[in-house]
Amino acid sequence: MNPENRQNETGAGRRRPIRRAVVTGGAGFLGSHLCTELRRREVEVVCLDNFLTGNAVNIEHLIGDPGFRLVQCDVTDYIHVPGEVDLVLHFASPASPIDYLKLPIHTLKVGSIGTLHALGLAKDKGARFILASTSEVYGDPQVHPQSEDYWGHVNPVGPRGVYDEAKRFAEAMTVAYRGQHAVDTGIVRIFNTFGPRMRPYDGRAIPTFIRQALAGEPLTVTGDGDQTRSVCYVSDLVRGILALAWSNHSGPMNIGNPHELSVLQIARDVVAATGSDSPIEFIDRPVDDPMVRRPDTSLASHELDWTPEVPWTEGLARTVEWFRTAVNEDSLEAATRQD
């Protein structure tokens, strides 16, 4: 057994081994990094994805690995995974505004029916279940920074409501399964994350800015750019998620970087990191766009001994390099067609 896996089992966290995991949305940005890290820890992985927003390129390095199995399916349909399962990571969902505004009903179905099916799988297998929730459950917050006991300020009938309420419902369903069916559940509230394998046209700020800067296009900052985000490099996020998975904590638990940046500063840093001479242009802010976003991560620090380690500038440099080398003209064209 991998020594890291053994340490997680016998340390301050979970007491039983995790030998086989199911990752829904496993070909997506976060899901694919989870699959990669689980295999590094010698955990067998079953990746479920319908490729609506995921991309087979993200997990092509795992194809042929005898410990990795890819199943193309939609979690809003019945899920069947033969054999034992120790962990279910439910990460299937459109996650960027472009995706869930284009796919509002499917987003709601994944958060409701998909979560029901994933929980049912965990119940049947006696597996630990981790729900990928989001900082969007806090809406446009009136409390700053946001801690897990804050109930949020969400507009359920606004354009972002399909994603926000899908995740809030998914949290309620997860808690219900824990209470009524004694399923071993955990909820992670994910704050803004970035790194390699982000889709260049998914509409989120960092990949959009990098794509624009590398192409010599103006960087389009919404509003006056004073709104803030806290961005976490993907390896730190994955480490935090799996720390929760190996623990006995039910959550909800914020995982994100508490270092706060303005959107305008992010754009300026991208220009510097790419060596671009692209100008910055200001466009209208989307409806219900949060003004501030910063996690209180004291719970994760105390319960999981987790803190982010990759500085913003270092993570940005890695991400820019990935965009330079991996996002060639063919993949950009494919991403355009997908979006």
Rank of each mutant, 00 (worst) to 15 (best):
K109C: 12
V110S: 11
G111E: 10
G111D: 05
I113P: 13
I113N: 08
G114F: 07
G114H: 02
G114I: 05
T115M: 11
T115W: 02
T115Y: 01
T115Q: 03
L116A: 13
L116V: 12
L116W: 11
H117P: 13
H117K: 15
H117E: 15
A118T: 00
A118V: 05
L119W: 00
L119S: 04
L119I: 07
G120Q: 10
G120V: 04
G120I: 05
L121P: 11
L121I: 12
L121D: 12
A122I: 00
D124P: 02
D124K: 15
A127Y: 06
A127H: 06
A127V: 00
R128F: 02
R128W: 07
F129M: 07
F129G: 02
F129E: 03
I130D: 03
I130S: 01
L131R: 09
L131W: 05
S133Q: 01
T134K: 01
T134S: 15
T134P: 12
S135I: 09
S135H: 13
E136F: 03
E136S: 10
E136R: 02
V137I: 15
V137C: 11
D140M: 04
D140F: 02
P141A: 10
P141S: 11
Q142F: 09
Q142V: 13
Q142E: 15
V143R: 13
V143D: 07
H144F: 15
H144S: 15
H144P: 03
H144W: 14
H144A: 12
H144Q: 14
H144E: 14
P145A: 08
P145F: 10
P145H: 11
Q146K: 02
S147R: 11
S147C: 13
D149F: 01
D149V: 08
Y150T: 05
W151K: 13
W151C: 13
G152D: 04
G152M: 06
G152L: 08
G152C: 11
H153K: 12
H153N: 15
V154W: 02
N155T: 07
N155F: 09
P156R: 01
V157N: 14
V157K: 13
V157C: 14
G158F: 03
G158H: 01
G158P: 10
P159R: 05
P159Y: 00
P159W: 03
P159A: 10
P159I: 08
R160P: 04
G161T: 00
G161V: 02
G161P: 03
V162N: 10
V162A: 10
V162D: 05
E165L: 09
E165Y: 01
E165V: 00
E165N: 06
A166W: 09
A166G: 15
K167V: 12
R168Y: 03
A170G: 14
A170P: 13
A170Q: 05
E171S: 14
A172E: 11
A172V: 07
